[in-house]
Amino acid sequence: MSDRLRQSGFVDLQLARWRNRRGQIVAHWQRLAARERRILKVAALGLALLFSWFGLIEPPLEKMAHWQAELPRLHSQSVALEEVLRDMAPIAGEPVDLWQRLRQSLDTSPLNGHYRLAEAAESPPESVRVLFMDAPAGPLMEWLQHSAPELRLTITEAHLRRASATDTNGPVATVSGDIRLEPAQTAKETR
């Protein structure tokens, strides 16, 4: 492409124009008085300094000032967040182990006596399997909607069926089956 431009004379034409324009500028500069040259040099230096200040120095200084003002606020928010997270930690006397917390939650609900936790060999290492036998359906659904999320558990699999009972029109429906629960991922784990 550049060879074609040279052959067509485009490059030579542009160089000739540049030389002509440069010659005009030099001639105009030489016709100026020494005082005018000095004024133009000072003005050019002033413009260069203004450009350097407003274009290169002031923006980083403003960012530094902004972050120096923001850091104390962010630090106080971080401290407040740490306090909230510390308050969310298991209360003294509350079991730290997932199995103990799950067992305690089920024992204090109407589901006591209607469940069995699967052995470790029966469920994957990061999940808990709970087997329900003739459990009241209402309390079970309430426990799954409210208590399981409070324990930071998510339901990954559920197989429930209405328990075989002779009175299907009774006031309390019972269900049997198994539910697999896994610990909910925290924000740090999802990254």
Rank of each mutant, 00 (worst) to 15 (best):
E70C: 02
D12G: 13
L160G: 08
P139T: 05
L117Y: 12
S2Y: 10
A163C: 05
E150Y: 12
P136M: 04
H28L: 14
V79S: 05
S76L: 14
L32D: 05
E82N: 07
S76P: 14
D178F: 10
M141Q: 06
M88L: 10
W143G: 04
Q100V: 04
A163F: 04
E157L: 11
L85M: 06
L140Y: 03
Q68H: 14
G113Y: 10
G170E: 08
P90L: 09
L40R: 15
R116E: 10
W143L: 03
D97S: 07
R116D: 04
T108Q: 13
R101I: 00
H146Q: 12
Q24V: 10
S127M: 08
D167H: 06
P90F: 04
V175N: 06
L85R: 09
E82F: 03
Q104T: 04
R17V: 03
P60H: 02
N20V: 09
Q68S: 10
S2D: 12
Q104W: 00
A43H: 08
R17F: 10
T190C: 13
E70S: 02
K63I: 01
S105F: 03
F132G: 02
K41Q: 15
S176T: 07
V96F: 15
A120P: 11
E83W: 01
H28M: 13
G113H: 11
W29Q: 14
H28V: 06
Q24M: 12
A137R: 11
K41P: 00
R35D: 11
A135F: 08
F10G: 06
A118K: 01
E70L: 02
E182Y: 14
L74E: 14
E150Q: 15
Q30F: 09
L49E: 11
V96G: 15
E62G: 13
A65G: 10
G9V: 01
W29Y: 13
A173H: 11
R22K: 14
R31A: 11
E157C: 04
R101D: 01
D87Y: 00
T174Q: 13
E182V: 15
H66P: 00
Q185A: 13
K63T: 07
E62M: 09
L131R: 07
L40I: 03
H159M: 10
A48Y: 00
P171K: 14
E150N: 15
N112W: 01
Q185R: 13
R4H: 05
